[in-house]
Design a binder for these strands. Sequence first.
DNA 1: TTGATTTATTGGAACGTTCCATCTATAGGC
DNA 2: GCCTATAGATGGAACGTTCCAATAAATCAA
Lengths: 350, 350
Amino acid sequence: MASRAKATILDIAREAGVSKSTVSLVLQGSGLIRPETAVKVRKAIEDVGYVYNRGAANLRKAHSNVIGMVINDLTNPFFAELAVGMERVFQAAGIVPFIANTAENPVRQEEVLKSLLEQGVAGLIVSPARGTTPGAFRRIETAGVPIVFTMRRLPESRIPVIAPDNHRGAFIATEHLIRKGHRRLAFFGGSSDLVVYQQRLGGFLEACETQGIPVANRTIVEGETSRKGGMACLETALAAPEPPSAALCFNDAVAFGVMLALRKRGLEAGADFAVVGFDDVAEAEHYMPALTSVAVDTAGLGERAAHVMLKMIQARTTRAEDHIGAVSLVVRESCGPSRSARGTGMGDAA
Amino acid sequence: MASRAKATILDIAREAGVSKSTVSLVLQGSGLIRPETAVKVRKAIEDVGYVYNRGAANLRKAHSNVIGMVINDLTNPFFAELAVGMERVFQAAGIVPFIANTAENPVRQEEVLKSLLEQGVAGLIVSPARGTTPGAFRRIETAGVPIVFTMRRLPESRIPVIAPDNHRGAFIATEHLIRKGHRRLAFFGGSSDLVVYQQRLGGFLEACETQGIPVANRTIVEGETSRKGGMACLETALAAPEPPSAALCFNDAVAFGVMLALRKRGLEAGADFAVVGFDDVAEAEHYMPALTSVAVDTAGLGERAAHVMLKMIQARTTRAEDHIGAVSLVVRESCGPSRSARGTGMGDAA
DNA sequence: TTGATTTATTGGAACGTTCCATCTATAGGC
DNA sequence: GCCTATAGATGGAACGTTCCAATAAATCAA
């Protein structure tokens, strides 16, 4: 129970027989203090069970050391990986990021942002929720708090974005499927209100165009970006008179759902239907069959976002450049056996 | 860019032609204010782009509305599910929980807790990192901040714990395996420095005892609580002269690893070797084969923890009762086909 | 010795809020 | 007309820190 009233630097000052200013200096690790004095003060701090009141300090300092990470879906392992990447960087910089989840709900997002702002965050890293209104970040911008978007961008905003090269990722994945001999292709999952969706779908379509897949042979099924959504997509697609033989999925969760639905129908991913995912979450490698996916270097993107944020805070600016991360296709089993036997001379490695 | 200096209630007061006290009252939704005045003030707030400074407010009020959730491994979907359960409750109560990840690192945990405390949290929900020293929470307790542990408990601490009935879960899972006819059993993953481990292992051993499985037929392999750890456990166990035919795993991640290792050896979980997990994460149902697991009602535990925390804050106490959640075995494919044909008269449903 | 410089320490005025005690109208009762 | 209520609004003193300017003590240059 200790003392009821919380100890302040004045209590410590009294205990150590110095002034509050001295205590404050010690707390900030100032070199101006005589070592013996510092020791004395630190002992008093320990004895008294003092806890620093950052709120009071921020009142004067006007720049906190907390950064908010606002994430749209914490249960998606992809975002957990992203968060871990950011944390690595922030930890090294001695600052603690607080994570808040919006569960893809713009209203909740509003609350979360408000709360973080009131708390006096130094910066915000945000993966905006679906359906975020264009003006949602106006307030934060005028408050002068630096923001970085990750993964998703808002249609017309000028807030810097850290994201993978979605277009190219979808392009190379689709190209790969076509080279495998598939001529009827599908794009599964996601919805067109997301910029990311348009980018990935764009890459898919461009590859179809380039490789001469006629429009009639392209199936596009929107759906939830979850296993359940993926299952539904496959059902829809297979119900068509001339169903596709391969699909690029909006993300890995959708791909897992597609594979699940295939299995339910007694079909095998890879042999009977080629499936490619997007994001390459850790699980992809361990799935059965292992999922071919577009690797986006998730943790690396997180680290990059954190670095950009630190730079912005340091430079006291709210502007920064976008960063588009490189992507690569990780070929595993779900897109069919390697056709190396055909000896086309084009390795899958590229 | 707007105005450089942040607006305060005094700016609003000037703008609206009232006193700062009036603005403060409006901000708190006091009924003492004439509606027209409130409207006027709210308009000024909007015009000026004011953001509330909670730090300054807490300086007077001495109780914040932020709650910290300290989680030991965010990449484990289990904890994400737990966090989501808590968030549901807190959201309804109008408070925003901040999540911080310790990545199972006691040093990081120390930093995170310190930061949260300095921020003036009203309460802390913690799943302590492995290797947490007994005194790690002393400071927080003396500060009078309510804490609740989830999932894990510290050896001798008197901090309330919300956790599933680990012993019983392991017991019923083991009993199930024995009833299926297995006589050589293993317990895979985890390490003995965790109280949870001792509870789950205890349940396993008690079931072996009760059902007459001799000590020589029990294999216990400690290991990392991850897929990789699970793979290693299986390899170790199968190298023995008389290997087990079934395993209860410390958690689902370990179980997934075990199934993966089985597949690598050309064996099939369920048919060749029975696997049971613990936690019943969402993925378990969708795995191939679907994983039999001990369901702990993860989100429910999260909700319960949040409720207990709210009660503690409200009652201004730092004491609360433990809560042990009910568990149930969800039988799927990974523990072998149902032997209903044998007609033992004992259904699996119980 | 004196004055200048350096080294440690310190009081006091912010910072943006809340809340208590006051104050001013206006209304009502007689 | 006076007194008392009541509703609405307000000034001022905290809250726990930082930081500037000032001080005191010690060191040094001459």
